[in-house]
Design a protein around this nucleic acid. Sequence first.
DNA 1: CCAGTGTATCGAATCGATTCGATTAGTCGC
DNA 2: GCGACTAATCGAATCGATTCGATACACTGG
Lengths: 356, 356
Amino acid sequence: MSSTARRATIADVAREAGVSTSTASVVFSGKVNVADATRERVLAAAAALGYAGPDPRAASLRTGRSGIVGIVLGGELRHAFLDPVTTAMMDGLSDALASISTGILLLRDDPEGEQAPIAEAPVDAVVLIGCSGRTRAALETVRQRGLPVVVIEGEAGKGIPQITLDNREASAGIARYVRELGHTRVATLTLPLDAGREVGPITPERIAAATVDVTLDRLAGFREVFPDAAGVTAAASLVDEGMIATRALLVDADGALRADRPTAIVAQSDLLAVGAIRAAEELDLRVPEDLTVVGFDGINADGLGSLKLTTVAQPAVAKGRAAGEQVARMLSGADGQSVHFTCTFREGETAAPPAS
Amino acid sequence: MSSTARRATIADVAREAGVSTSTASVVFSGKVNVADATRERVLAAAAALGYAGPDPRAASLRTGRSGIVGIVLGGELRHAFLDPVTTAMMDGLSDALASISTGILLLRDDPEGEQAPIAEAPVDAVVLIGCSGRTRAALETVRQRGLPVVVIEGEAGKGIPQITLDNREASAGIARYVRELGHTRVATLTLPLDAGREVGPITPERIAAATVDVTLDRLAGFREVFPDAAGVTAAASLVDEGMIATRALLVDADGALRADRPTAIVAQSDLLAVGAIRAAEELDLRVPEDLTVVGFDGINADGLGSLKLTTVAQPAVAKGRAAGEQVARMLSGADGQSVHFTCTFREGETAAPPAS
DNA sequence: CCAGTGTATCGAATCGATTCGATTAGTCGC
DNA sequence: GCGACTAATCGAATCGATTCGATACACTGG
């Protein structure tokens, strides 16, 4: 019925109601007193014209606020929904933001070509999840735009609030636990080292070129305890990738179990650890009798059968909430602060002394 | 160093470069040819002034496009991240939207007071996930604004593309499977009936007042096979809520196992089914020997021990992708189309004939 | 040498609201 | 009856871009 004409504007409504646009505007924003009779006349006019309230684009241009907080995720957006740690963080984040924000805008950090979405998104503030190597570019864009920003687990410039985790200490801690069980042939199974997500053995060259802080920190903690241990990187924090990478640690090129295979695997995520356990089962190795596997994150990992994973738990929801709280502070004019979190060792059933 | 002055605008850049604002604008949008020398002069001016590109708010006011697609989730935002079916859908959705959209805006359907966020979000189109009773209000708001909209599993007005699932048929199918195993005392464990998420036995009155289509459809399918069976609603699709509701089915007020307890429970989601299994184990009932439990969704349910759940799998990722594709169509001017999906029965190890 | 063609740049209108200072109307006290 | 004061409403500037028709200029071919 009204699809032919262009949509009504507040000026149309004002004219219909016989008031000025400023008065009509005020009826909708409610920031100034309006006589009841006037308000009703304006509302009636709006209803008659099918006016659905102020255009958010125009309003945000004028006010300089959109009510949207952007959250920049590494790599594919879809990845975010598959990673339990990320979803937990988002959970906390949306909780903390619920009262001050219209919504959360999910942004990719940067698709190869094109300009970064973050450069053209109408957001009031940004949360950067710093697990990707491309985060630096995104951070630069955001700073250029002068937006408040909080970085979760990533290197930030000075003056930028960060949400951090004791990745290195926690990794060293669980590595130490493994050593105290008596393991000496230990390997680590890491998260990707860079945005390229190349799979393969860890070499000094690859470490030097690495861009993912989380991976490096956890690796550094591990190396404190096992300086010379071997390691492989997985292509992503997924069970399947964990399986693939684990096979590289356990079997030869011809598919036979290696004699010098590790007796313990320290994985950098629970999903990778689950992958390691699956791979071990496929090779007829029992966990933990023949192979110890420990993880990182403390998610409720799926697919372990009845085994409880030995791991360190991180407060993922709290991290997200803290980020949201700092964004809220900054949006209200205060300075954002950095917040540090620590992990908790959680004993499970996937670690045991090595077979004698 | 530049925090005192207001941010540079494209007019400032144009002046600095000695060109008109139209030319400067065109340098950034790239829609018209610009001489190389001019382009470089403008870019240099922009760099000198710290201009980070066009303000998205102003640009979207002028062009009428923000590049953002809104997705309305029922209830708390955080809930979305905890529900595997929802995350799977978002996965497919973000995949389909990746090429045409800057980002995905997560919106709540409506916080009790206040105006709905959906009324003031600068989105180009909306995807409504219709599992909440409040979706109707959100749909009305969106239609008022004249935005393209796709509804996933919810009742939509005519002319609105829907993504649907054969909830009723699939439910009837798995109920029939249970009946053919020989069960006669069967109960159903349902999703919430309305936004209030009231827990408790299913009564005709509550059904009449229900607003969640998915719940009603699956219940209707179940009732085709077991017209008189008892049922309880859970407060949410969560393992814990499944446990709580299941206890109501299995034990008396004084905590003793009921003699007339069901020999099979048909749950409306896998998470609820897992809850049912947990509750059964707590009561020393074996699954499936003492109690058959079947689910719905086909997620990789966590916490089952080594048991594989008998369930019907729905193509959640495909649903999301279809929604995204329809949004893309509508944004490019074409008409959106409805898409229908069907579930697949998946045999597991949690269903067996009743104990004789 | 001029009409004709094409390319690069410019001017000015426009998108749809918000907001602040100014104006008007109405009330109160004395 | 009048000045002072308050509350409601209005006018006009403004937010920062985009875009289209007009203009200026250089070059080609006859």
